[in-house]
């Protein structure tokens, strides 16, 4: 059998310029066997919703939502959990998963010997992370709808909103991973996401704090995600939501630019 007999040749010029979707294809093949791992991430926000949202909600009663409208406590907490699920999905994807491929398996170095380029990898992995985040957030919003925690048709916009959350955290997660040297560094990821989850206006409005501390909390990107999604699921639109969306977008773009530069420098020495 002759292997080099030309069975085909992709002619020069036939290359697709945008090829980040090849990374998605790769991840899709790999994840077909790992669906259980992915599936488990769906339950975490649901557990929070039933324990904190519904359980504590029974003690708390109604709270004042965006624009001062009273809403049930569960309806207040749910969009925050939705934002957190998009964050977690994207962060897990771009940190733990990518670190292994980047540092130990040299998978990307191999990929770069094909027509793929570092930007394809950066865009592909961030996009995939975003998809994982959105998978969690959009299954979660179904739970919310079923439980009657969305009060407006505008709630549908929470899904594109969570795309922004996934993008921002996926991009920054990937950028951060390029700086990581050992598994210990991953404690820092938890150290960043855990307090963000607790203090981003997730479980109570930020105005319980004095203004100085409020200001600190407002730097948290998750705060912007939470406020954005809360506005949508409770159907209260406000111009500040534009600021939240913009914050996430800029954060994602900066993260993506850094990730792209770093990957290029690491992989093409």
């Amino acid at each position: 059998m002759s292997v080099s007999a030309p069975s085909r040749i992709s002619g020069i010029g036939r290359l697709t310029p945008f090829r980040a979707q090849r990374i998605w294809e790769h991840n899709y093949i790999a994840y077909r066997r790992l669906w259980k791992v992915v599936f488990s991430g769906f339950f975490e926000p649901v557990f929070y919703l039933f324990s904190v949202g519904v359980g504590i909600g029974a003690l708390v009663g109604d709270v004042s939502g965006p624009g001062g409208v009273p809403v049930s406590y569960a309806a207040f907490v749910a969009p925050a959990l939705m934002a957190a699920s998009a964050m977690n999905g994207a962060v897990i994807e771009t940190t733990f998963n990518i670190f292994f491929k980047l540092r130990f398996q040299n998978v990307y170095e191999g990929i770069l010997t094909t027509p793929m380029q570092p930007a394809d990898i950066a865009i592909g992995e961030i996009g995939w992370a975003l998809l994982r985040g959105v998978l969690y957030s959009s299954t979660f919003i179904i739970v919310m709808v079923v439980m009657g925690l969305t009060t407006s048709w505008l709630a549908i916009l929470a899904i594109p909103g969570s795309v922004l959350v996934g993008f921002a955290f996926g991009a920054v997660g990937l950028a951060a991973t390029t700086y990581m040297r050992s598994w210990q560094d991953f404690d820092l990821v938890t150290l960043a996401t855990m307090p963000m989850f607790l203090f981003s206006g997730t479980f109570y409005p930020l105005d319980v704090y004095p203004p100085a501390i409020q200001l600190v909390a407002k730097i948290s990107p998750l705060y912007h995600g939470t406020e954005l999604l809360r506005g949508f699921t409770l159907g209260v639109l406000d111009w500040t939501m534009l600021v939240h969306a913009l914050f996430l977008l800029v954060m994602g773009l900066i993260g993506a630019a850094i990730a792209n530069r770093r990957l290029d420098a690491m992989l093409r020495k």
Binding site: L15, H26, A30, N106, V107, I111, T114, P115
Partner: peptide, 25 residues
């Protein structure tokens, strides 16, 4: 390459398949 960098997440045939895809086949 000098060091094997096969994709441990994929099977033998999937390793070949995805490289074909990277080449737009």
């Amino acid at each position: 390459p000098q060091e094997d960098n096969l994709d441990l997440e994929l099977t033998v045939s999937e390793n070949l398949y995805i490289y074909g895809r990277y080449h737009d086949m």
